[in-house]
């Protein structure tokens, strides 16, 4: 049996909000350590890897491994019915037909209970070996989101160029071009405002702006995003959860 209680529904609300536009069907794998998901978008360009460790829950138990096949749009409809500050408990039997979601208001005696039918989802799984990266950028997630949104107004591609202590986001469109350069910066008082660049080799990679604009839907989850890049390899964008992560692997664009 699975029983996982979040102190606040807001965490799962944000996670589902971040994923639902990229992937329609997901298997949520529940083990004693927590809940994990691997899902790939229909175009097979973007892979989502989610880990909500048991430590992200107020209470968590899962006696046997359970797979919950969930339709994200349906899950999102139910999740939206709960308030962000409600306690949320996920309950499923050992061989479940449904996932139960219980929202409890902390101040009033109000309990809302929903049941979501499960689906059999035949999903293929990609093996992601330990990847080596040439550059790692830690930066404020809100700033990264703004850059992705702004650059998408110009072109459907966004170029990321990293040299020594700066990252340049460059967009070349039909009617014009634009770029934003950010440099390493340490804010000792507000560490979440800092930009850290770790570079082994200079980077020049191009990504689909559409996918980046799906990834930045994770912005409410974490104040910082970590971007890991390697020449002609998928990039990794990571948002930390209180205990766990939401990662996106995005295939680049390049000439064959």
């Amino acid at each position: 049996m699975l029983e996982g209680k979040f102190d606040e529904a807001s965490l799962l609300k944000k996670v589902i909000d971040a994923m639902k536009d990229s992937v329609k069907l997901c298997n949520f794998n529940c083990t004693e350590n927590g809940i994990s998901v691997q899902a790939i978008d229909d175009s097979r360009v973007l892979l989502i890897s989610l880990l909500i460790e048991a430590g992200s829950f107020e209470d968590y138990r899962c006696d046997r491994n359970i797979v919950l096949g969930l339709e994200m749009e349906s899950l999102n409809k139910i999740i939206k019915n709960g308030n962000a500050s409600d306690m949320l408990t996920l309950v499923a039997e050992d061989s479940p037909d449904a996932l139960n979601l219980i929202f409890e208001d902390k101040r009033r005696d109000r309990i809302a209970e929903y049941s979501l039918k499960l689906m059999d989802i035949d999903q293929d799984f990609l093996k992601i070996e330990d990847m080596k990266f040439d550059a790692v950028v830690n930066m404020p997630s809100a700033e990264f989101a703004k850059i992705c949104r702004d650059m998408k107004t110009l072109s459907e591609s966004l170029q990321i160029i990293i040299t020594k202590d700066s990252v340049k986001f460059n967009s070349e469109g039909d009617f014009g071009s634009g770029s934003v350069v950010i440099k390493s910066f340490t804010d000792l008082e507000k560490t979440e405002e800092s930009v850290r660049i770790t570079l082994e080799k200079p980077i020049n990679l191009t990504f689909g702006a559409k996918y980046l604009n799906d990834i930045i839907k994770s912005t409410p989850l974490a104040s910082q995003v970590t971007i890991k890049l390697c020449d002609k390899q998928p990039a990794l964008f990571e948002y930390q959860l209180p205990s766990g992560y939401l990662r996106f692997y995005l295939a680049p664009k390049f000439e064959d």
């Binding site: 360009v45 892979l47 799984f125 990609l126 591609s157 295939a251 664009k253 390049f254 000439e255």
Partner: peptide
């Protein structure tokens, strides 16, 4: 002209 790659070119199915 750069082409959008897919993840299947980099990762194998498990």
């Amino acid at each position: 002209m750069s082409k959008q790659q897919t993840l299947g070119s980099f990762f194998s199915s498990a």
